[in-house]
């Protein structure tokens, strides 16, 4: 373990820490989890805990096997677990939850070298791995609900649901908590939403159904804003979120399911490092000028 060299300036350091940021990020998920537990009861609580346990166990086992200590970001693993569970449809088999958690940590995080080094958003990677495993196709649900109306903003109980999007109001509340406390890139969610909205309009789709029925809102606040798998420069983040939003809608045209956002974002994750190098006028953060 390396420690800060206190003989070097600056001698004051921020009172914040990466672990604290993960903890506070998790607190933004609480409203969404609460709404889910309200609608699905015990089942949701069980799925969340199961995913968390599976993620934490995988992480601690891995840190035993490899010499490095990964057990420094427990809350980030719990967030990963919950973010995975939020993508799953109610009534999903418990095996899917456990396997998804293992896959998220192993393939999403650890093979890249732990938190911050991961190319893909771990929850999405776990979900994608799960979806291609034989027998688990049913984790993807169709979300083509043309007949939605605004009354379903607060609570939805129809079909095509996942644990995550029962209540748009809860998502908005939790997301705004994160944004106002600047725990996530402030502009990304709104750029993602705007871009998705514009594309949805351009393609003549039902805006309402894209926002209300789909998991666009959930993605905007909790997945697009993941630090490690997004670009680090602000311009990179803008392009990243805009492209992810557009891609989500494009994929939805072909397959109106909960997986559209997942694949769109995974694709963008893969090119995120390139987006850091988009030259910009005033700043030299992106390289160039």
């Amino acid at each position: 373990m390396i420690f800060t060299d206190t003989g070097q300036p600056p001698f004051l350091r921020t009172p914040d820490s990466a672990a604290r940021m993960s903890r506070r990020f998790f607190s933004g998920l609480l409203p969404v989890m609460a709404a889910s537990a309200w609608v699905f009861g015990w089942e949701a609580v069980q799925v969340f805990s199961l995913a968390a346990v599976s993620c934490l166990l995988t992480e601690s086992l891995w840190s035993r096997v490899s010499e490095k200590s990964f057990r420094i970001h427990e809350w980030s693993s719990v967030s990963t677990a919950v973010l995975l569970a939020l993508l799953l449809p109610p009534g999903v088999s418990r095996w899917a939850v456990v396997l998804g958690g293992v896959a998220a940590i192993l393939f999403g995080k650890m093979i890249f070298g732990g938190l911050g080094q991961n190319v893909f958003n771990p929850s999405l990677a776990g979900f994608a791995v799960l979806a291609v495993m034989p027998g688990f196709e049913n984790v993807i649900v169709s979300q083509n609900t043309a007949g939605m109306d605004w009354s379903s903003v607060f609570l939805e109980t129809g079909t095509g649901l996942t644990y995550g999007d029962v209540s748009k109001a809860a998502i908005l509340f939790g997301g705004m908590l994160l944004v106002t406390r600047r725990l996530v890139p402030v502009r990304s969610p709104f750029v993602y939403l705007a871009s998705a909205g514009i594309f949805s309009g351009l393609l003549g789709r039902n805006l309402l159904s894209d926002f209300i029925a789909g998991n666009t809102l959930l993605f905007a606040f909790f997945y697009v804003t993941d630090f490690a798998s997004a670009p680090v420069t602000s311009r990179g983040r803008l392009v990243f979120s805009a492209a992810a939003g557009a891609l989500t809608i494009l994929l939805r045209v072909y397959d109106d399911s909960s997986a559209a956002g997942v694949y769109a974002l995974l694709l963008m994750n893969a090119v995120a490092p390139l987006l850091d190098r988009i030259p910009s006028g005033r700043s030299s953060r992106n390289g160039g000028k």
């Binding site: 390396i2 206190t6 350091r13 820490s17 990466a18 420094i72 602000s234 983040r237 850091d276 992106n286």
Partner: peptide, 29 residues
């Protein structure tokens, strides 16, 4: 209490260092 050594962890790519830099360069990269 201010000079206690603290653990150095890998970068989480939060981008705070860029945002705090007054001359607009990218310490992270």
């Amino acid at each position: 209490e201010d000079t206690k050594p603290r653990k150095v962890l890998p970068c989480i790519r939060c981008g705070l260092c860029l945002q705090a830099c007054p001359v607009w360069i990218n310490p992270c990269l």
